[in-house]
Design a binder for these strands. Sequence first.
DNA 1: TAAACGCTACCCTTGCGCCT
DNA 2: AGGCGCAAGGGTAGCGTTTA
Length: 318
Amino acid sequence: MTVTIKDIAKSAGVSYSTVSKALRNSSLVKQPTKEKIRAIALELGYEPNLAAQVLVSRKTFTIGVVWPSVDREMQAALITLLNNQLEEEGYTTLISINDISRSVKAFQRLQVDAMLIFDDQQHQDTLPKTTIPTVLFGLKERSQFPVIDVNRHEAVKKITEYVIEEGALSILYAGLTEGEDPLQAAKFEGFLAATSSLQGATAVYNTKGLNRLDGYKAMKAILQLGSPPHAIIFGSYDLTVGAIDAIHELNITKTNHLRIASYDNMSGHHELTFPVLFTGVPLTIIVETLVDKLLQAADGQPVTSISLDPVIHPSDIL
DNA sequence: TAAACGCTACCCTTGCGCCT
DNA sequence: AGGCGCAAGGGTAGCGTTTA
């Protein structure tokens, strides 16, 4: 049978109000009374009833996250870090990989305190109406909700300009270059913006996906070209990892002077077996910002959109 | 008689006001 | 100051009443 504060009150010979205050270390209860009540609670194995606490506090201490998938290493790393940091703040993270409408309906019923949506949807009107304080991880210009924008366009533009300055005369962008995902389009447009006035050769490879296998296939195809490019910029971390698989399989070494760059700033998180230049907002900064904004939203505070600055960072191996 | 509807009590915690 | 009594909060089971 569940032990409640009424059982403790009966055993201690005080009212249940006093038990509640004693367990919350209220100054309105004498120290000896507190100690007696705590001892009885411990003896009876008392655990506060979450449902009742939710009723009173009107908070569930849960954050709903609508995530497209967790099969990409970058997304899994980000969600793991986010979960850990929210846990430290006393929150439980509920992740849904259903479509946005179903996820939001579920989170509405579960009464989560705030919600994070990974906004890679094709159209803004797919975002359902909700009373839950919501933060988007997407593109700043796209939403009625506050957005955390990691400036994908600028990240890819920066890295492209960087490799041009390094002396790359031919550059290839490998990523999702078609389709309606605005996040991937932003990256590709960043590449186009940086190479619009380039004298050297540019090329594009549509990977048709963002997973490791897509990167592997892309790299094998690219390296079989008559004259491979000096630099290849991959549109995601997972593509880059897959590309490195292909590089090793084909016995390409650093001495081949092939420059590999990658969107998704995973520097400091993983060691790669081939030198890579990362571009993007570091994972830790993204997660810190997400947690900060989500806690603000959960507390009912107004949340403003923010655009984070991408940085270029080499991998551990050079 | 069954279905539909409305009302009440209960779950548990905690803040507030009042009493000793 | 220390302690008690009461009410509130959302959802729901259970009961009673009304309607078809």
